[in-house]
């Protein structure tokens, strides 16, 4: 039996009275890149935000069902959403390093404010480690006191990845991380995914079937809030079971 990084059981999300995720069951094995693909507005980002309870920042949103991370239901009544978010890192569609903090502080802030390191040396080490993991260290090691506004879009996004990795998350959620990045930067981030999945489980939202095909091991196709198809990426692309999936991966369906 494969150990699961994340599992949803009849996951439903409502905005007000409007159901946007309509009872999704999916299983994500450990140490893979798992792509959630589908056209814009199908609920991918919403679902991703249910995985670290970030959805709760929106007072309109309501979640039903279970999300299990390493077996534990994060929507159980005794679970603190703050704890969940420490264990589940997130990278966003728009690269959002904190503009008022230096490159160093952007990586360090989660550790510092959560009191996860004991000394300055430990913090230095962890920042270096995270920047190396995010393949950014060589580009910024001489200017850690510089501000992110002087980095390219791709570098900023890798800085955000480093910020998330520094917390040593169990799972990394990525919400269309290359949507606003140029092709060169996109390639670097995609290459990084292959490295990262050795240690982490990555759940990647993308609206590009091509990207899902390039980087993922498993893919779930979401359409209008419903899970249409789920399986190993190769199988879903080469031999889809559902007609909608075929239309989507071949580009007939936008």
């Amino acid at each position: 039996m494969i150990e699961l990084a994340l599992e949803t059981r009849d996951l439903k999300v409502y905005y007000g009275n409007n159901m946007v995720i309509k009872g999704v069951n999916l299983k994500v094995p450990k140490n893979v890149v798992f792509a959630l693909m589908g056209p814009s507005g199908c609920g991918k980002s919403t679902m991703l935000r249910a995985f670290n309870r970030l959805l709760e920042l929106n007072s309109e949103a309501r979640v039903e069902g279970e999300v299990r991370i390493l077996g534990r239901n994060i929507y159980a009544p005794n679970v603190d959403p703050i704890e969940v978010r420490r264990e589940v890192g997130m990278v966003f569609q728009y690269p959002n390093p904190f503009p008022h903090l230096t490159i160093y502080d952007n990586v360090a802030i989660g550790l510092k404010l959560n009191g996860l390191v004991r000394s300055k040396e430990e913090l230095d080490k962890r920042v270096e480690w995270a920047l190396k993991k995010a393949a950014l260290w060589d580009e910024v090691k001489d200017r850690l006191d510089d501000y992110p506004s002087n980095l390219s879009g791709g570098q900023r996004q890798r800085l955000v990845i480093a910020r998330a990795l520094a917390m040593k998350p169990k799972i990394l959620l990525m919400d269309e991380p290359t949507a606003n990045i140029d092709p060169v930067g996109t390639k670097k981030i995609e290459e990084l995914l292959f490295e990262l999945k050795k240690k982490y489980t990555i759940i990647l939202v993308t609206h590009s079937p091509a990207q899902a095909a390039r980087v993922s091991d498993y893919v779930a196709f979401l359409y209008l809030g419903e899970l249409i198809e789920l399986g190993p990426t190769r199988k879903v692309f080469e031999n889809p079971e559902h007609e909608l999936t075929e239309q989507y991966v071949t580009g007939v369906l936008g």
């Binding site: 920042l57 704890e83 969940v84 978010r85 997130m90 390093p97 404010l113 959560n114």
Partner: peptide
């Protein structure tokens, strides 16, 4: 402050007080 930064602060597991007053 654009909403993305609020998301970012909370996604790091910060409490509301820390996210608001420290970030």
């Amino acid at each position: 402050i654009p909403f993305e930064y609020r998301d970012a602060a909370f996604s790091l597991g910060l409490t509301r007080v820390k996210a608001v007053f420290r970030v």
